[in-house]
Design a protein around this nucleic acid. Structure first.
Lengths: 234, 234
DNA sequence: TGCATTTTATTTGTCGACAAGAATTCGACA
DNA sequence: TGTCGAATTCTTGTCGACAAATAAAATGCA
C-alpha cells in the first residue's frame, strides 16, 4: 500500500522534520548545490518538504548557529560567503587542529578507532584510484574526522569538523584541479599517519600531521593563484 | 502613558523576541541561576516572557547548538551537565586556546585592541581589590576574550569564548574559595601578558600564556580535590 | 500489597493564519 | 524622462490551536 508521495517524501515521522531539513540543506550548502550567497526562501522550502515553516525555521536557526547561513533581521537569509580575504585564519586553525587531533589520537586511541580510521583510508585510496575528486574530498575529511574522534576531545572535535566542512566548500570550488599527482602522495602520508598513531608516537604524529596539513594548505594556495591568473587573463 | 507591564517586559519590538530569550537564558545558565540538570519548560517561559512558544523554541535551538542545553526528542529539555569525568579535555583545550590567542594577539593586535585589553585588566584588578569573586570571574573572561579578539581569528575566538563560558559555569561552583591570595598573582601575570603582547614578542606571549593557563587549571584542580575531601568528610 | 494494563494528563512537534517591515511597483509631478 | 512618495506585494516574526508522543495516574487482577 505505498503511494507515490511516500517515495518522494519518505513517511516523515513526528520529530524528524527539523533534522531532515537540516541534514539536507547542510549537504547542499557544503556540496555547493547552494553556492555562497544563494537566497534561502522559507516558503519555498516549506513547499518542497511539504511541511509548515516552523520546522524549516528551526533548521535554519541551527545552520545559522554553525555559520553556514547568514540572516539579516526582518530580511532575507542566504548561504554564507567564503571569506577569501582572511583565508589565512582558516589555514592557521586547520593546521593547528590537524596537529592537535592527531597528537591526541596517538595518545588515546583504542583498537576500534584504528579500524575505523583504516576503513576511511581505504575509501580515500579507492577514490584516488578512481580519480573521483568529489569522493576524495569527502573521504579525506572523514578520515581526519575519525582521527579526531579517536583523540576524544569534544572541543577539538567540534572545531575541527567545522573547519573540515568549510574546507569541503572551498575545495569544491576547485575540484577540477585534483587530477594531478598529489593525491597519491596524500595516500602515502595517510599511511604514515596511521603508523605513528598506532605506535603511540606523539611527537612523530605531531610532526607528520603538521607536514601533511601544510601540504594541503599549500595546494589550496596554489589553486588560488591559478584562479587569480585566470581572472587576470580574462 | 506608561503602564506597569511596560516596566516588566520593556516594549518588545518585532524580531527581538528570540534574542531576548536567548540572552537571558544564556546568562542564567552561565551564572548557575539555572544549575545543570534544571528542567526547561517551554510553556512556563512563554508565560514569563509573555510571548508564544515559537520564539522560545528558536532560542532553545540556538542554546542547544552551543551545548548549553540538552534536548531529548519528544521529551524534556534541560540545562546540560558539566562533565567532571572528562574535565581534562576541557583543560587541554583551554590551555591551548590561551596560548594560541595570546600568540596571535602579539602578532596582529592594533592600538585600539591594547586599549580594550587594558580596560578589561583594570576592571579585573578592581574586582580583585574589592574581593568580588563573581566580578573576578566575569572580568577575567572578558580580559582574555579581548586578547582573542585582537588575534583576529574567528575560529579560535569562537572556540575560546565557548570554553570561557564553560569555565564561568565551573568557577561559579567554587567561587567561595576565591578568597585566597592567588588573584593578586593573576593581576600581575595579566600585566606581564599585556607587556609582551605590546612588544609583539610572540614566543614570550606563548610562554607566559601557557604558564598563566596552567596556573588557572591547577587552581581549579585544587578546588576539585578540596571538594572531594569535603564529600568524604560528610 | 504488588504488578500489569488501561486511562488521563502533560508536553512536544507541527500547522495555518495574521500582522509588521521591507522591497517593489505604480503614479504624480516637475 | 527622471525623481519622489504612496500604495501594493512579499517575506518574516509571532500567535493560538491541534495532534502525536510520552509520562503519570487510575484501575483491574492475582
Amino acid at each position: 500500500m505505498t503511494n507515490i508521495d511516500a517515495i518522494v517524501i519518505p513517511e516523515r515521522k513526528r520529530g524528524s522534520g527539523v533534522k531532515m531539513v537540516y541534514d539536507l540543506l547542510r549537504d547542499e550548502i557544503l556540496d555547493l548545490v547552494l553556492p555562497p550567497g544563494s537566497p534561502i526562501d522559507e516558503v519555498q522550502l516549506a513547499e518542497r518538504f511539504k511541511m509548515s515553516r516552523t520546522p524549516i525555521r528551526e533548521a535554519l536557526v541551527r545552520l545559522s548557529g554553525e555559520g553556514l547561513i547568514d540572516t539579516l533581521p526582518n530580511r532575507s537569509t542566504m548561504v554564507s560567503n567564503i571569506d577569501f580575504l582572511n583565508m589565512h585564519t582558516f589555514f592557521d586553525a586547520l593546521v593547528l587542529m590537524y596537529r592537535v587531533t592527531t597528537r591526541l589520537a596517538a595518545q588515546y586511541h583504542r583498537a576500534e578507532d584504528l579500524r575505523a580510521i583504516r576503513a576511511h583510508q581505504a575509501e580515500f585510496a579507492a577514490a584516488v584510484q578512481a580519480q573521483d575528486a568529489l569522493a576524495m574530498i569527502a573521504t579525506n575529511a572523514a578520515f581526519h574526522s575519525a582521527i579526531a574522534e579517536a583523540g576524544r576531545n569534544p572541543y577539538f572535535i567540534g572545531l575541527f569538523n567545522r573547519l573540515l566542512d568549510e574546507g569541503r566548500r572551498i575545495l569544491r570550488l576547485y575540484y577540477q584541479s585534483y587530477e594531478d599527482r598529489l593525491p597519491q602522495r596524500f595516500v602515502d602520508e595517510h599511511e604514515e599517519l596511521i603508523a605513528v598513531i598506532a605506535e603511540r608516537d606523539v611527537e612523530a604524529a605531531d610532526r607528520l600531521a603538521r607536514a601533511h596539513a601544510e601540504q594541503i594548505v599549500e595546494q589550496i594556495r596554489k589553486l588560488f593563484v591559478r584562479e587569480e591568473r585566470l581572472d587576470i587573463a580574462l
